[in-house]
Simulated scan of single mutants.
Amino acid sequence: MPSSSQTPEREAERLRIERDELAAAAQRVAVQLQHFMDDTTDPGTEALAAQYELSRILSLLSIDTSAVDEAQYLSRFSATPSEIHRFLANRLPEDVHLNYQQAIGGRAVEEAAKELRMEANAAAAEGIRNDLTPGWLRAANFIDPMQSGGLFPSELIRFGETGGAR
């Protein structure tokens, strides 16, 4: 069921993607049914009628299989950040995509700030460069989202277009 805050454009996009996924599944069924009919000497009236009906319905649809093909192409073992970015960028509005990147970036910056504090405190405990410890701690607090630091990234990272990994 669609969310009440979802825009008509987002709902239309969601429905288009669902239609394309259903149409792609129907195409796969039609191909398998055709193989069955080709391999069987007497496929039967029901199989012939089903193949005809599937073909007729699919011919009426203008189908964009890129969404389905892209999702099937992405592999958890080989997808690059650039491929994942492209996949998400094609499906999410920029502000939603930026919020997603900021959630990940915020966690990474929080972890980095924590590590910087630990290094500063360890250096101070060992008497190494005590003059740098206050600056390191201020820097860690300045960037840490848990200490009212900024949102990172501040702009959408477009992998493969304007920098970013791979």
Rank of each mutant, 00 (worst) to 15 (best):
P81G: 15
D20I: 06
S55K: 00
S3D: 14
H35G: 02
D69Y: 00
L15N: 14
R56L: 05
L48Q: 13
E11P: 00
S78L: 12
L60E: 00
R76V: 15
F87W: 14
F152T: 12
A122M: 07
E155H: 10
V29R: 09
A79V: 15
A71T: 05
G44M: 06
Q51D: 05
Q34N: 09
A89T: 04
P81Q: 14
G150W: 04
A50N: 06
R158G: 03
S3M: 10
A12F: 09
V96F: 03
Q102V: 03
S148H: 13
L60V: 01
S82R: 15
P8A: 11
S75C: 12
S154I: 09
I157M: 01
P145W: 11
F152D: 02
L116T: 06
E13K: 07
Q147D: 15
P93H: 08
A122L: 10
I17Q: 05
L54F: 06
N99Y: 08
Q6R: 10
I104E: 04
S59G: 04
D144K: 09
A108M: 12
M1R: 13
E9A: 14
G164W: 09
P2N: 10
T133I: 04
L132D: 07
G164S: 10
D131Y: 08
Q34C: 00
L116Q: 04
P145R: 11
G160L: 07
R28T: 09
R91H: 12
L58W: 04
T80C: 15
Q27M: 07
A79N: 14
